[in-house]
């Protein structure tokens, strides 16, 4: 039914008074700015982004085939171990992914230890695991001493300096039981886990820094909010002046 042919009709898109026309134009402009600022920018981010690997992922890809086939040399194993530690340092990983990564890391450390010392190393790790399970306070001196010892002993095996954050994580992620072999499960799932955590959507908008922020982060977290307040303020000022001009009183 066409209901528009009478004097008591309101439609945002067909304003009938000077006030309604001015208001319609104002609203259209502000909504347009608002929409493009929010969604336009995110679409631009999406268009410009490229999957960008972390250096650890490049190392992983380089050595993975030889590690999987059991033909990796010491340097390749070290690179592999360091790459898995790079993911283990990220707190987003799920318990299942952690188990896979722990298996890869523990097996690598075991492989980098000469055969006669492997049993001794496994014993040390087991000893540390039992202390870890028994303490009620992570500042327990005995626990800390064991942890530091293990880190100092094993970091060089992976080519990690004591200044590398990963050397601190290393003892916590080792498992004597998981170090026995690289499981089929790990062989099947590890590449996907590494790709998931070590490849990121980056572009010029994410790499460029502004006031210390990655630019896209600044734009979304700070600038958009300033823009929203600005739009609201401007709308109120414009509406007040429009009402004054047209002698409209609330």
């Amino acid at each position: 039914m066409d209901n528009s042919n009478d004097e008591y009709h309101i439609s945002f898109f067909k304003p009938t008074t000077p006030q309604a026309v001015a208001n319609r134009n104002m609203v259209v402009w502000f909504v347009l700015i608002w929409f493009v600022a929010i969604f336009g920018f995110q679409i631009l981010l999406r268009i410009l982004e490229k999957p960008t690997p972390e250096p650890s992922f490049i190392s992983f890809e380089k050595v993975w085939e030889s590690v999987k086939s059991g033909s990796a040399g010491e340097t390749e194993l070290q690179e592999f171990g360091r790459a898995t530690l790079s993911v283990l340092g990220k707190i987003m990983i799920t318990p299942e992914e952690r188990t896979t990564l722990d298996n890869a890391l523990s097996w690598t450390v075991s492989q980098l230890t000469i055969d006669p010392l492997r049993a001794e190393l496994a014993e040390k790790i087991r000893d540390f695991e039992s202390i870890k399970a028994s303490i009620t306070d992570i500042s327990d001196p005995g626990y800390i001493a064991k942890k530091v010892d293990l880190s100092s002993e094993l970091s060089p095996k992976l080519g990690l300096s004591q200044n590398d954050v990963r050397s601190k994580i290393l003892p916590l992620e080792l498992s004597a039981d998981l170090g026995v072999s690289l499981t089929e499960e790990t062989k099947n799932t590890l590449p996907a886990i590494m790709k998931k955590y070590l490849v990121h959507n980056q572009s010029v908008l994410t790499d460029f820094k502004f006031l210390g922020f990655p630019f896209h982060y600044f734009y979304t977290a700070i600038f958009l909010l300033i823009l929203f307040v600005g739009i609201c303020w401007l709308y109120c000022v414009k509406t007040d002046s429009l009402n004054k001009r047209l002698n409209i009183v609330d």
């Binding site: 982004e49 790079s86 990220k90 987003m92 954050v165 601190k168 955590y197 959507n201 994410t206």
Partner: peptide
């Protein structure tokens, strides 16, 4: 200290 964690700030990161 922290290992590089780009997934924290990169848009719609697969890790998330």
């Amino acid at each position: 200290a922290i290992v590089p964690t780009p997934e924290y700030a990169m848009p719609w990161d697969p890790a998330t």
